[in-house]
């Protein structure tokens, strides 16, 4: 296949970026989207240019490192996959493809398609955990957990922290990410002690990072490669309300 690619090139966080066009020939429909970018980079290298910077690692949809907006959609046109799992058979010979980084104030562009997502780590730092010391745990079967609750917790815990939800949201909100972690822990008995504090802290940290508010567009759920449900946002908001009414004091720093 022959493609026309329009790729966002930006030399540094401070530099002004722009789309640059590339013609790429010899693309096999069996290639993954990132194999295709590798091929392009090999071509750019031989033409004496600097390859396109993009992040990736496991290339099987679990590490959450890769992420780019492909033809206006985070992770591209196929549902429930990451950019690395997208294959070129989805496209046709002669297609034009527009590729750009996640765009959100809280995710500054480092170079080309690479953005900084450390804001996610700071949201987790504010309370996305159960406070337990190594070696202090009781026997694992001491607390039976109904299978249904364990499965629900897992569904929420499947989040890979890629940031597609933020990229898709018109408000650049990270509420789906935040709510997924809060839900994972709040479905489990171990997570109850810190539940309200966690909700208050995480939402505050989320806002402090410069992510926008959720206004129920649902675009996040549409692009989420793990199919995380927006219902968790409602669950988190209920916990947040309870926390506020019960006078939980926020402590994110």
């Amino acid at each position: 296949m022959k493609l026309k690619l329009h790729i966002w090139r930006q030399a540094s966080p401070q530099a002004k970026g722009e789309f640059k066009a590339y013609d790429l020939d010899g693309v096999s429909p069996h290639m993954s989207f990132l194999d295709m970018l590798d091929l392009l980079n090999e071509q750019i290298l031989h033409e004496g240019g600097e390859p396109v910077a993009f992040e990736h690692d496991c290339r099987e949809g679990i590490c959450g490192t890769c992420g780019m907006v492909i033809n206006g959609i985070a992770h591209g046109p196929e549902k429930l996959i990451t950019a690395c799992q997208l294959h070129m058979r989805t496209f046709n010979d002669g297609d034009e493809i527009w590729i750009e980084p996640w765009r959100a104030a809280a995710f500054p562009v480092m170079k080309d398609l690479v953005v900084e997502r450390a804001a996610f780590d700071r949201i987790i730092q504010s309370g996305g955990y159960i406070s337990v010391r190594s070696g202090s745990a009781q026997d694992a079967n001491a607390i039976p957990i109904p299978k249904e609750d364990a499965d629900r917790a897992f569904d929420a815990a499947a989040c890979i922290g890629c940031g597609a939800c933020v990229a898709a949201c018109p408000n650049a909100s990270a509420m789906l990410f935040t709510a997924a972690k809060a839900a994972h822990l709040s479905y489990l008995p171990q997570g109850q002690t810190e539940r309200l504090q966690r909700a208050a802290n995480m939402v505050t940290a989320h806002d402090e990072e410069g992510f926008g508010n959720c206004t129920n567009h649902g675009a996040c759920q549409e692009v989420c490669p793990k199919g995380i449900s927006v219902d968790y946002i409602g669950r988190l908001n209920r916990d947040l309300l309870k926390a506020t009414l019960s006078g939980v004091e926020v402590s994110t720093r």
Binding site: I130, V132, P144, P146, K147, A153, Q190
Partner: peptide, 22 residues
């Protein structure tokens, strides 16, 4: 033995039987 205890205490959602045990 300790690893499983530790992971469960942290909230790792291991697969469970219908009775709620691991």
């Amino acid at each position: 033995l300790n690893i499983i205890d530790q992971a469960v205490a942290q909230g790792v959602p291991f697969a469970r039987e219908y009775g709620g045990l691991l």
